[in-house]
Design a protein around this nucleic acid. Sequence first.
DNA 1: TTGTACGCGTTATCAA
DNA 2: TTGATAACGCGTACAA
Lengths: 336, 336
Amino acid sequence: MRNINIKELAKALNLSTSTVSRAFRDNSDISRETKDKILAAAKELNYQPNHYASNLREQRSKTIAVIVPELANNFFSQAIHGIEGVARSKGYHILIYATDDDFEKEVSFIRHLHNGRADGIIMSVSGEGNDPTYLNGLNNKRLPLVFFDRVYEDISAPRVITNDYESSFAATQHLIKQGCQRIAYLVINKNLSIGKTRMQGYLDALEKYGIPFDDHLVVDCTNSYRKNGQILKHMLQELKPDGVFTSVERLAFATYTACHELGVQIPEQLKVVGFSSLEIAPLLNPSLTTVTQPATRIGVEAASLLFKMLEQPDTVNSNEKIVLVSRLIKRRSTAV
Amino acid sequence: MRNINIKELAKALNLSTSTVSRAFRDNSDISRETKDKILAAAKELNYQPNHYASNLREQRSKTIAVIVPELANNFFSQAIHGIEGVARSKGYHILIYATDDDFEKEVSFIRHLHNGRADGIIMSVSGEGNDPTYLNGLNNKRLPLVFFDRVYEDISAPRVITNDYESSFAATQHLIKQGCQRIAYLVINKNLSIGKTRMQGYLDALEKYGIPFDDHLVVDCTNSYRKNGQILKHMLQELKPDGVFTSVERLAFATYTACHELGVQIPEQLKVVGFSSLEIAPLLNPSLTTVTQPATRIGVEAASLLFKMLEQPDTVNSNEKIVLVSRLIKRRSTAV
DNA sequence: TTGTACGCGTTATCAA
DNA sequence: TTGATAACGCGTACAA
């Protein structure tokens, strides 16, 4: 069964293409009767208006692009889940792009999206702290952009983030109150805004409780599973921390693994708290104290914001910032 | 900065639109010199060929659609990750759709994709065992379809699956060898092919070792976290199994949670093994014995198969079946 | 090597 | 209420 086009359908019904076209749009004038007839025939002959022709004509794609650093990641898949729900309810489709934390890919994706393929972009930026000003040359066109979670601070675009500073402060404070004095901060890229903000919370909590800052305890990790294992084992043995605060989920897991391998007892010898959206954190050994971001909700808010920009451009300020609240959930990994 | 079109760029360069067009296509004749000039000017003026116009003209979208039951799920996000990598390397974009295990949504997505929006579809089917013959009326058009993991057995389309029967047999056998006699099989939808296949492995393993089959031990669960908790706690208390084999990851987690709440000791009182792609299964309490599917690889294979269908249609048989091997990884949850 | 002209399938404008 | 027609932006015969 071939795809037929509007002409063929029109001919089959002895109608003009305009009339057929009208049957598929809600606003136009068309008699109830002919409309029904057309829709019935369309179903019968399996006709659907060609998407590309429509979009070319209407100059919009009913598609939004979502760019994330990685796909196989709890947080991002939950966020995408949230975005998808909103998009579907609006009749929009979503294109997915993964940068693998590669800035070049990010730039390339963004550039190529400026060809009409998408009506808007939702992005969590790549991990490399490169120069994001390339966005300035672009975003003034009518391709709205919304950031979520990982943002470029100096780029003017609406964003949905969480209260990273406060939750990092709270997490660090929690470790201190549980008796930790040598608290390591684990980060993937401390130049990225999110790494910096979370670190500031860590630093300020230390200061508040009069704990001297030791910059050896700020440990720069990688995206490589293997390398992180080496780095962390080395760190645990050399620096002998009694607490660890990880700025991303993966590093909490890496810490667990390193401790298992070294025979370091959590929480007796080392207390661990980390950012994590893992639903089964309670099932870990020991159950993991987490700073849990409302990942799905972040996606929902980001998508809603983007649709607001699409539907009522004037109501959204480019400095708009939605801050959602993360929760510190205390579990066994930080028990006394 | 507005988007400019090919006409404006041509005018700016004092060239014809065809010449400009040629500069963006590799095959056509065009002097090195003019080509460079055009590309430079394009960059300067931020010109990109309009995607919808190109696609309308060329009758293909360089886009594939991926339909999955859910997004916030380890297995599927890893599979999508695999698909994305292959697609990107081919210069293709991917559209993502989540059915939420709703058959109606699946049908709707598939139907709507037959409007030129995508050149092919990769799908893991929705969880409801409805009538999939709707696909027969469609897939003969030139919109290639590849199934992965969850498939419709009676629909003729290439598929990428894992050796579910064998690994289920192996998992059940492992439980038996560890001393289990009353082994429960947990499934979400036992009418779905995947649920059936995995159950057959379970049944045959029981039979091989002369363990009588008790159909109360086949427990139909849901997608609701709360309901599963009730079902499982009830099951544990009433049926007193000494082993549990779960056909999907989520039910293994639910089992853990129920056991924690009831104070049932794993593995002493109950041994657990489940299908799961969770990378941190070793970190669970206790570490979880898993049947681990090569999720990313499945995505890669499915995408590769689809591209083969797009590039050399005749070389792919519609009955083609790629079977990848899952691994049974023994951990503490089934220790003696 | 470059330019002219047409058509991809649709929708909006205008006329009937 | 319906039909004829032009235009959306591009790519490719064909002509130059």
